[in-house]
Design a protein around this nucleic acid. Structure first.
Length: 297
DNA sequence: CACTTGACCTGTCCGC
DNA sequence: TGCGGACAGGTCAAGT
């Protein structure tokens, strides 16, 4: 579910809310969701305080004062929601408290809650995950760079030094694959998923089945700009919410209201009016304008 | 090695 | 209304 803009939105919310808070208790209902939440590591979790919340690719990192960090992957349906304690009558509502009016989710925990973190200010953070693909792990902060995923993950597409040439050279390692599969490859570019692959290819007027080896420099330049623009726009809109994604306060993102192709099959293209089609490319639902994005091979 | 496909889970939606 | 099957935004492992 969550791709780079969604994880970035969650990270920003948690970075405002968590630093300085101390973990007082952790419970989990599913060993898969927090495979090493046992006595070996809990001593580095309970009693530790949050130093900083960061993001790399689609992974959240919560650095703790114990020299350990929580690593969290939301995968398809994961949520990480902070709830402040209910305000006493007459007291001002705390930032991060439940917002019944605009929150997508209600009472927590609910049946998708897998892990609950309690903090010393009586707030809770809920890791919810309907499909149980996501996970939380606690590992020494110094060992993070040695994890296979971080060793092979590609560059951050919004980094200042992510030039179109770097993007071209990375994608050309997958020269015989189609461009959609290459964009989804986390070792080529970090954080791109199905939504922003489709949106950026529409922006660059490239058909998703086009083989990477058939793309020209002009295509890579257009794709580079389209990808960065669409990721930044989505972050500005708080990410995309289809049905399960919410930010750190349980609120939906509004990017899908600005999407040009994703989930718009049967509707007219915003550029030329041709009806948007949905097909299957690289094993994923894929949205294109058949006029703007004509297959090149 | 490069590339594609299936599996992991649960919930929802669509057609019969 | 009920039921089976397809599908869902991510990543691995296993297959060709």
């Amino acid at each position: 579910m969550p791709e780079l803009p969604e994880v970035e939105t969650v990270k920003r919310g948690l970075q405002r809310l968590l630093p300085g808070l101390t973990v007082t208790y952790v419970s989990d209902d599913n060993p898969k969701s927090f495979p090493n939440a046992d006595a070996d590591v809990s001593q580095f979790l309970v009693g530790a305080s949050v130093v900083e919340v960061t993001r790399r690719a689609k992974v959240l990192l919560i650095e703790l004062s114990s020299k350990y960090s929580l690593i969290i992957h939301l995968k398809m349906t994961g949520q990480l929601v902070y709830r402040a304690p209910a305000a006493p009558d007459g007291a001002p509502v705390q930032f991060g408290a439940g917002h019944p009016s605009d929150s997508l989710i209600g009472e927590l925990p609910d049946r998708s809650t897998r892990v609950i973190f309690d903090f010393d200010n009586d707030a809770h953070m809920y890791f919810n995950d309907q499909r149980k693909f996501g996970w939380v792990r606690l590992i020494p902060t110094a060992e993070i760079p040695q994890i296979d995923f971080f060793k092979k993950v590609g560059p951050e597409p919004l980094a200042e030094d992510f030039t179109w040439q770097i993007m071209r050279d990375g994608l050309q390692r997958r020269k015989n694959a189609n461009i959609k599969a290459a964009l989804l490859d986390q070792s080529v570019i970090a954080g791109v998923g199905n939504i922003y692959a489709d949106e950026s290819l529409w922006g660059a007027k490239i058909h998703p089945t086009t083989l990477v080896r058939n793309l020209k420099d002009a295509d890579f330049k257009h794709l580079h700009k389209a990808l960065r623009d669409v990721l930044q726009l989505s972050i500005d809109k708080g990410g995309s919410t289809d049905h399960t994604y919410v930010d750190a306060e349980g609120k939906r993102g509004s990017y899908l209201g600005f999407a040009n192709v994703f989930r718009r099959e049967g509707q007219p293209c915003n550029r030329c009016g041709t009806i948007i089609e949905k097909t299957r490319v690289a094993g994923r639902g894929t949205h294109t304008c058949p006029y703007c994005q004509r297959p090149a091979n």
